[in-house]
Structure formats: C-alpha cells, structure tokens
Simulated scan of single mutants.
Amino acid sequence: MQKVLVVLTNTTHYGKTADPTGLWLGEATEFVAPLQAAGIHVDYVSPKGGFVPLDPRSMKYTNPEIMKVYNDPDFQQRALTHSLAAKDVNPADYAAIYFTGGHGVMWDFPDNPDLQRLSLAIYHQGGYLTSVCHGIVGLVNLKDDDGQYLIANKKITGFTNMEERLSGKRKVVPFLSEQAAKEHGANFQKVRAYGSFAVQDGQLITGQNPFSPAAVAKLLLQNLSK
C-alpha cells in the first residue's frame, strides 16, 4: 500500500501575539479524503509531534466532506492529538509528503531540520513534494546537493501576496510566501485571489490557497497511479 505523509503545525499563536492560529482544517481534510478513497494510507506528522491546534477561523469554512474527516476518531487521534514527531519518521516509507497550511506553519515549517530531512529523502527516492497555501514555506528553504534552492526555476504556487493582504494578516506574518518563493528563484504561478489552482513541475505539486487541496490531491493521485 502506498503511503503519504501529511505535515501539520504545532503553532498555536501568531508569533508573540495572543491571537490564536494553527492548522487550517480543510487544507488537511480535503486532501486526505480523496487519498483515502483511492486506498492511499495517510500518516500525520508535525515538527514536535503530539497536539496539533486548529485555526479557529477555519471552522467557519467547513462542508460535509471536511466534517466527515474531522469527526473521524482516527483523524482526531492520529492527526490532532498524537501526530508523529518529525524526528521519528522514516522517509523510506512514503511516496509523497504534503505540507498543509494555516498561518501557524509560517513559524515552524521553514527551517525545521527534521522536516527538511524527510522532504529531501522523499524527493531523492523519487517521491513527490506537495503543499497547499502557506504550506509552501515547508519547501522554500530546501536545497539540493549543490546548495541550490530546490524550487529555483520550478513552477510552484502558494498563498499570494494579495491573498495575504486580503486575509488581514500581512503585518503579523514573519514573511510573505510568494515573495520568499520568488527570492529563492521559483517561477511563481497564480490565478485570481482565492481561486482553486494547483500546478505540477516534476516532483513538485503545489496549490495556491485553502480552496486548492483537492486539486493538489488530484494531481498527486494521477502520478501515484502511473
């Protein structure tokens, strides 16, 4: 059975503020649902392991599919309560890694050495590096064996500068996803704000915003079925 590793944040607040953040629920569940329907096993990992907070704003944007996964005791247990710690995961077990979003990831994804180890190992064994929305920050700092950014000259997408402005959080995030990707040489692709969009370039499959996880899953499944 093929397995995919889903990465979740442990961050509970926007930086040093008291404002709560965390995983954007739909960015996990709307990716996981089609994979499970296709018989793909999903494991959940976070930088520290254990508890994964939910961004309270994400609970305002649910649908029956999101709630079906959210209410599953397996998801509650393995994703939100007892996620695996990145340091303990064997990358050889996985055909792909998927970085979810939610603003919390801006603080604990970009420079985590264990997540970088997992991602590069999966990539070098021919697996896929995938993300949605702010999850792109889990890929922006990866470097290849020559010390070059892995996303350089690659078509990728993620949460745009405009979408960050519209979210009202531009002044509290430590950096902008689109800007960071471009600074590291990516050929950044985008459509209108909050439109569903995903793009593939080789082993990289990325989605633009919270309305794009199903599009990322569709592309990944097409590749895993080859």
Rank of each mutant, 00 (worst) to 15 (best):
K171I: 11
N153K: 15
D43P: 13
K171D: 15
P110Y: 03
L5Y: 14
F109C: 06
G50S: 08
Y70C: 00
Y98M: 06
Q36V: 09
N141T: 13
Q222R: 08
I136W: 02
G39R: 10
P73I: 10
Q76T: 09
E178R: 04
P113I: 08
E27A: 03
A18E: 15
G138M: 05
S196K: 15
T11V: 15
F75G: 01
D144M: 12
L166P: 04
A79Y: 09
L142G: 10
G147W: 14
L204A: 06
H41P: 02
Y14V: 04
K48E: 03
G126D: 14
V140E: 01
P47Q: 03
T29Q: 04
K60Y: 03
N10S: 03
K190S: 12
S196L: 04
Y123K: 11
V4A: 04
V7W: 12
M106A: 11
Q125F: 07
L204N: 03
A217G: 00
S225F: 08
N10D: 01
H103E: 00
S177I: 12
F51D: 06
L118P: 04
G207R: 08
V89R: 02
P73T: 01
I205P: 06
R170D: 14
H82F: 13
K154Q: 15
L139W: 08
N63S: 05
A85M: 09
Y98Q: 10
Y98G: 05
A33G: 01
L224K: 04
Q2I: 11
G49T: 11
Y94P: 06
G185P: 11
V216C: 05
R117M: 09
Q76A: 14
T130G: 12
G126R: 14
Y44R: 06
R117H: 14
K48I: 02
N187G: 00
T100N: 06
T9A: 02
A180V: 14
P34E: 08
F159I: 07
Y194E: 04
L224V: 10
G138C: 03
K143M: 08
D108E: 08
T100R: 09
F188E: 06
A198L: 08
D201G: 09
I122G: 01
Q148F: 04
N10A: 09
I151R: 04
L115K: 00
Y123L: 05
F99P: 01
W24K: 03
V132T: 07
M67I: 09
K48N: 11
K68V: 02
V216R: 07
A18F: 13
D72H: 10
V4H: 09
L25N: 03
V140M: 02
K87Y: 12
L176P: 00
Y70H: 15
F159S: 01
L118I: 15
D114G: 03
W107I: 03
H184D: 05
N112E: 02
G104I: 06
F175E: 00
Y149C: 00
K48G: 07
T21Q: 00
G49Y: 07
T100I: 10
N153D: 15
Q203K: 15
G202A: 09
G135N: 06
L23H: 09
